[in-house]
């Protein structure tokens, strides 16, 4: 299992994790056999179309699932060597916030509309750090400064609707940071914000991540955005990681046809793209009855009959840390791939 040369175990180790949901149509596998490691101080981007299972993946990692979720026992989430799924209710409450924290997509809905900002900020500080009111308020003001909220004293007494979207998201980030988590998960933290603010929020997350040396998982639809903020990127499709590599490797030597399709829909890689990804031809797979072989095969420009025979393994391409779930990754066939227009690529690996 351990392919890392790093002697100490990673902060977060996910192994063969699957999450299904009982639905009226049958079991829906939203996450299907995902494995990855994340070290302290690193930022991992998770990209993929809507419905590819990004949110379900991180919610499973945090052990925060709906009642109709099914997680098979062979899936493991080891955080600092402990299986998150073994935590009991009390341990869990201390674990959330101090070990892992989460920033949600929509700051509109992640703050309670009828509670003052101050109370929302200090509640978890008081609970986790055991501080009294004054000390908690002090800490809250400190956090608000850290996330760049002007006039923090005044904000403490305000309600969420009195703040702009960007300010609200800063409050949400401050709450997530309040107990110095070791891992921060940001699930599309900027999707609900307007373009000028998106960049500020990502810069803020990046700066805080560097300052505190925590690990971060940054989820987004937008490959262009993650590029400048992440150390590595995992591309998800149909509940599986189809490609996982260091950010620079991914852009230089992309291996999976889906990654290529994602990238093709961004006009420029080096400029942040604020546009949502254009839809790739075809529809995302039906997760209750996924296609038998490679999940992307029905939409893939390079499909062969072989692709539909069995689900491809995650294999190393180019270098060992760069993995890809494709029987004929593009890296080794770049020239061929570019030469061929027809969907059926002649020759085989």
């Amino acid at each position: 299992m351990s392919e890392s040369t790093n002697p100490s175990p990673p902060l977060l180790r996910v192994r063969n994790l699957s999450t299904g949901f009982e639905t009226p149509r049958g079991l829906l596998w939203a996450v299907d056999g995902v494995s990855f490691d994340l070290d302290q101080g690193r930022t991992m981007g998770v990209v993929g179309e809507s419905g590819s299972g990004k949110s379900v993946l991180v919610r499973t990692v945090m052990n925060l699932l709906a009642a109709n979720a099914v997680v098979p026992d062979d899936g493991e989430v080891l955080f600092r060597g402990r299986n998150v799924r073994d935590l009991d209710a009390i341990e869990e409450r201390h674990f959330w916030g101090t070990e892992m924290a989460m920033v949600f997509q929509d700051p509109m809905t992640s703050l309670n509309p009828v509670k003052r900002i101050g109370r929302q900020l200090t509640e978890s500080i008081r609970f986790h750090l055991g501080l009294d009111d004054d000390a908690a308020t002090e800490r809250a003001l400190e956090l608000m400064n850290q996330v760049g909220i002007p006039e923090p004293k005044k904000r403490l007494r305000q309600y969420p609707h009195e703040l702009s979207g960007g300010m609200r998201q800063r409050v949400v980030i401050a709450i997530a940071l309040s107990c110095s988590p070791k891992l921060l998960i940001a699930d599309e933290p900027t999707t609900a914000l307007d373009v000028t603010v998106q960049r500020q929020i990502l810069d803020l997350l990046g700066r805080i991540q560097r300052e505190t040396d925590m690990a971060m998982i940054l989820i987004t639809h937008d490959l262009g955005v993650v590029a400048s903020y992440t150390d590595e990127i995992a591309v998800m499709y149909g509940g599986q990681i189809v490609e996982h590599a260091a950010t620079s490797d991914l852009f230089e030597d992309l291996a999976h046809p889906y990654t290529e399709a994602l990238l093709a829909s961004i006009p420029r890689i080096d400029l942040p793209s604020h546009a949502r990804l254009q839809a790739i031809g075809g529809r995302p797979p039906d997760m209750v009855a996924p296609p038998p072989g490679c999940r992307f095969a029905p939409r893939c420009a390079y499909r062969t009959d072989e692709c539909e025979a069995a689900i491809p393994e995650l294999i190393s391409v180019a270098d060992r840390m760069h993995t890809c779930r494709c029987i004929r990754p593009l890296v080794s066939h770049r020239d061929v791939a570019e030469a061929v227009v027809a969907p059926n690529r002649p020759g085989s690996s």
Binding site: M62, L64, R93, H94, W96, G97, A101, M102, F104, Q105, D106, T109, S110, L111, N112, P113, V114, K115, Q120, E123, S124, F127, H128, V172, I175
Partner: peptide, 23 residues
Amino acid sequence: EFVLSARLLGERNPAIISRELLP
């Protein structure tokens, strides 16, 4: 999501009901 974050910040179900949802 504020209900979820309340859970994440250590609130128990009765507290979530009375302090987050009730108001």
